[in-house]
């Protein structure tokens, strides 16, 4: 049952990412590669990054996937809606967030800043047999960062770094030898990490 729930959750995340990616692909096929992209337009972005920070050794590095669909209001300002997946050692997190970004220049390669704000759903990864999860909650997701966008025809390759905050909590019981559910652990965690990665924007 635990395995099925786990697979369903992962399936949900991957489905969401796939849906976003599909819309990106459709948009790409409808863009004329010969003409420069207009300032005002719908854009699509896919990110792959690593997450690193100090959590007393409990969690090492994690990786993150994000897919964002948004609208470019001008040459420098844009906003979008994103969905992602962060794979920590003990938890998976699926953030859904609003992205605001602004670039230094309105065209060509340029530095840019961005901020993601949203909510991350979180759930525990595999647990031993003697552990019983009682509760698992996500929380606020916030990720401001900077990047550099290299313009190539009508798409761009971006590298970025960002600071990430993700709240989560969980509660579980386990048999410590004095009987089932004798011990209970609750954890409230605010992850504060740095992330870095690359993205492609169409």
């Amino acid at each position: 049952m635990k395995l099925i729930t786990h697979l369903l959750r992962k399936g949900l995340v991957l489905s969401g990412l796939a849906l976003f990616s599909y819309s990106t692909l459709i948009a790409q096929t409808t863009t004329d590669p010969e003409s420069p992209p207009p300032f005002k337009r719908i854009y699509h972005e896919g990110e792959l990054g690593i997450i690193q920070g100090n959590s007393d050794g409990n969690e090492g590095s994690a990786f993150a996937l994000n897919v964002i669909n948004g609208y470019r209001f001008s040459g420098q300002l844009s906003a979008g809606l994103g969905i992602g997946w962060q794979n920590y050692d003990e938890m998976d997190v699926m953030p859904i967030f609003l992205r605001l970004s602004g670039s230094l220049k309105s065209s060509g390669s340029t530095p840019y800043v961005f901020a993601d704000t949203g909510y991350g759903w979180a759930w525990i990864e595999d647990t031993p047999e003697f552990v019983r999860i009682l509760e698992e909650n996500g929380g606020v997701y916030f990720r401001p960062g900077i990047g550099y966008s290299i313009s190539i025809n009508n798409w761009s390759l971006n590298i970025f770094t960002a600071w990430l905050m993700q709240k989560s909590s969980y509660r579980y019981t386990y048999d410590d030898g004095w009987g089932p559910d004798n011990s209970e652990v609750s954890e409230e965690r605010t992850r504060k990490r740095f992330t870095a990665g690359i993205s492609v924007r169409f």
């Binding site: 920070g53 770094t161 011990s183 409230e188 965690r189 992850r191």
Partner: peptide, 30 residues
């Protein structure tokens, strides 16, 4: 920008970017 980026990337590993954690452990013992 790449220089600035690498500086930040180095800071990413060097800085004390620690989680805020509160763990409550409740148990019975004799």
């Amino acid at each position: 920008f790449a220089g600035l980026f690498m500086l930040l990337l180095t800071g990413m590993f060097m800085t004390a970017c620690e989680d805020d954690v509160k763990v409550t452990h409740t148990y019975t013992y004799f």
